Amino acid sequence: MPDRPFHHGNLRAVLLDQAEAVLRERGLDGLSLRELAREAGVSHGAPRKHFIDRNALLDALAERGFVRLADEIHQAAAHAPDHAHALQAAGSAYVRFAVKEPALLDLMFAAKVDAPSEAVRTAAERLFAAMADIMSAGVEAGVYDASDVDRLTLVLSATVQGTASLIASRRITTSQGEGLIKDAITLFLAGASTAH
């Protein structure tokens, strides 16, 4: 069968969109560059112009996931009236992402942990920077000391990631996860106020 001609203006974006859909529907094992090329209607070699191999595709998916999650957290927290609501909004955004994209979340935090590419590492740092920005706003609001921001950012990140993982693995429901986030933030803020 002859190769079909390339006809997409932005094949990379098309392949990533399709790869996310496959990841949602069939999981990580269902991803193949050849199959994505077939579904995109391009030659089986066309994806290699953007992704040298399957691992490069997985890196790009993880990078895209970190960037999207960071943006969603930033947007959610930006509209909050105060720090407590910003924490809740960030936690809720994280949970929504976990519910919608459990396989992508797993790829981001489990499959790409060992020797991540520079792009994946940078994208992950963007997510943690979004969380740090929220914590820094708490410093400005007088909730925390500036010296606590790094530690509190890790605690917040671990809390929302752990809750998201429990939801994604169906150990708890989404509403239970939202309740856990709310309870954790209440304890988080109570602990911060007693530390002053």
Rank of each mutant, 00 (worst) to 15 (best):
H44G: 05
G45M: 10
A46L: 03
P47D: 06
P47T: 03
P47W: 00
R48H: 15
K49V: 05
H50D: 12
H50N: 12
H50K: 06
D53V: 00
R54K: 14
N55Y: 08
N55E: 14
A56P: 02
L58Q: 05
L58E: 12
L58N: 09
D59N: 14
D59C: 10
A60K: 04
L61K: 07
A62L: 01
E63Y: 11
E63N: 04
R64P: 01
R64E: 09
G65A: 14
F66L: 09
F66R: 02
V67T: 14
R68F: 03
L69M: 07
L69H: 08
A70H: 07
E72P: 10
I73S: 00
H74T: 13
Q75P: 06
Q75M: 12
A77L: 05
A78N: 04
A78R: 01
H79I: 11
P81R: 01
P81K: 03
D82E: 06
D82Q: 06
H83L: 04
H83C: 03
H85W: 02
H85R: 13
H85Y: 08
A86P: 01
L87S: 01
Q88A: 14
A90L: 01
A90G: 11
A90V: 05
A90H: 05
G91A: 04
S92R: 13
V95R: 02
R96S: 13
R96C: 10
R96D: 15
R96Y: 08
A98T: 10
V99C: 13
K100E: 15
P102W: 01
A103E: 15
L105R: 12
L105Q: 10
D106V: 00
L107C: 12
M108V: 03
F109H: 15
F109C: 06
A111D: 15
A111R: 15
A111C: 13
K112Y: 04
A115M: 11
S117W: 09
A119W: 05
A119Y: 02
A119Q: 13
V120F: 08
V120N: 04
A124L: 07
A124V: 02
E125H: 12
E125R: 09
L127W: 05
F128Q: 08
A129G: 12
A129Y: 00
A130G: 01
A130E: 01
M131F: 14
A132F: 08
A132V: 00
D133C: 07
D133E: 14
I134H: 04
I134D: 05
M135T: 10
S136Y: 07
A137T: 00
A137V: 04
A137M: 07
G138I: 10
V139D: 07
V139F: 13
A141Y: 08
A141H: 13
G142V: 09
Y144I: 12
D145A: 15
D145S: 13
D145M: 11
A146P: 00
S147Q: 06
S147N: 00
D148V: 03
V149F: 11
V149K: 08
D150H: 07
D150T: 12
T153L: 04
T153Y: 09
L154M: 08
S157L: 05
S157K: 08
T159F: 02
V160P: 01
Q161L: 12
G162F: 03
G162T: 04
